[in-house]
Structures are given as structure tokens and as C-alpha cells.
Amino acid sequence: MGLSDKIYKYIFMTVALSSFVFLIGIIIVLFSEGLPVLSSTGVMAFIFGKSWYPTSTPPEFGIFPLISASLVVTLGAMVVAVPVGIGSALYIHEIAGVKQKMILKPVVELLGAIPSIIFGFFGMLIVAPFLQDLLHLSTGQCAFTGALILGIMAIPVLCSISEDALSVVPKSYREASYALGANRWQTLWKVIMPAAGSGVSTSIILGISRVMGETMTVLLVTGGAAMIPKSIFDPVRPMTSTIAAEMGEAAVGGAHYHALFAIGLVLFLITLMMNMIAEYISRKYRMKLGQDV
């Protein structure tokens, strides 16, 4: 390697490290801006505190209502997205012909490209009033509607990752199952699905992580009450929408401002953990298939 090639190598390496710098930068920012509140309120009181009154005097920074809102909405979204997303993946993989596949896969990807503000807008104007009438709710803007819309948003994530996982299951598994007299459904359900299991679970985890981080949809659709939900039809305020809705009114450098960063930190750590688990599972899976990792 010549001298100029070596210089280029180091320049490129430096630039390539920018992703690392950004990730570390995010961590540093969240910690340093979130820490003042965590230390004054206490980590446990912050996470498990039951009241979020950031603007009253004295303010109360307990984000348990926000965390529980995120959890309820995410869980609900998964009830929608897991069967529909994985079912769609199975359909595309097993039943769709070549031509259908060529249409369905891009269409699912397009569904995933729709911005979350559009989903939120659609949910707020169409779905929420519709559900309010249908189910006689006091408000259609509640955890249930949010979960439904987020569930639809997560379908493409689950579908495309699961479909990838299904498509790398070796053909020989299927042939072995057919040879033993199993029909297509039995083969799909008892042989191919388990073989693609870790890819499918990766898709679920990434789906959860994605839904947990969605902001605009929940901001417009879930109603925004910072209370621990007693029912799935209660209005709720998840962590993401709290940050988005309140940052505008929080004084820079004030306790409220720092508290919103601390929420960001909690959110970041949860999604980081999810992504790492997903990464770990898929890495193990690829090793099992003998692929290069």
C-alpha cells in the first residue's frame, strides 16, 4: 500500500467513526442534561413516581404514568401487529405467487414509508371519531386507538423482517417434511416457522422498539392525559409524546427541561436494550445457519 493509500485509509476511518461519535454524543447529551433531575428527584422516585406535574409548584417528576402509557400502547400495538405482520409474511412467503410477491413486497414497504404524522393525522380525524361512535367511548383519543394505529404502523417492520427470515430457511427442511407426508400448512407451521423462529422474534423485538419510539402518532391519537391508565380506553400520554408536547413550553435549563431529557434517556435505554437483544438473536441465528456474521 502506497503512502497516499494509507493516508486515505485513516481519513476514511475517521469519517466512518462519525456514527460512533453520534451515538456516544447522544448518550452524553441525555445523561448530562437528564442527570440534574435524576439526582434531585432520585432515580427510583423519577421512574416509579406516580404523578407527573412538571409545571406546578413544587413540580413533581414521576414518570410512571408515562412509562405505563408507553407499555400499554406498545403491548396493544403488538396484539395487532404480531399476528397480522407475521401472517402477512407467511402469506407472501408461502401462498403468493411470483407476480403477487413482486407487488405485495413493495406495497408493504410503502406502508412502512408513510410518515408517522400521516398515521397520526389519519388516526385523529378518521379512526378516533369512528371508534368513539362505534364503541360509545367518552373520547376516541385513547390508548386503544393509539395501539391500533401503532399496530398498523408496525406491520411492515414485522412483515419484512419475518419474510427475510422465512426465505433463508433451507429448502431441504421443506422437502424433508413433504417426504414424511406432511401437507403445506403442517410444514409451514411445524417446520418452517420454528426454523425461522429467531428471525421472527427479532422482528417482534424491533417492532416493539419502533413502536415505543413513535412520537407523532401517539401525540395526536392517544389523548394526552398523564395518568396511569385504568382501562385500555383511557386517554394516555406516552413518554415520546410528553417530550414532544412539552419541550416547547419548558424553559431551557429549567427542571422541566432536564426532566424531559431524562425521559429521553429512559426511552433511549429501553430501545437500545431492545436493539441489542435483537442484534444478539439474529447474530446467533446467522451463525446457526453457518453464515458469515
Binding site: V29, A244, N275
Partner: peptide, 28 residues
């Protein structure tokens, strides 16, 4: 090590919620 570090960073950066990017942009 450098390669793994960069790959790990990209994978995790891809999963960061968009509102957290907003916080980062605001602070930095």
C-alpha cells in the same frame, strides 16, 4: 475492533427513537 465498533454504532443509531434525535439536535 474498529469495524465492529462502527457496525455496532450504525445498528444502534438506526434504532434510536426520532424524538431522541430531536433532543440531541436541540442540546448540541
Amino acid at each position: 475492533f474498529t469495524l465492529n465498533l462502527i457496525r455496532m454504532s450504525i445498528n444502534n443509531l438506526a434504532g434510536v427513537p426520532s424524538v431522541v434525535f430531536g433532543l440531541f439536535g436541540l442540546a448540541v
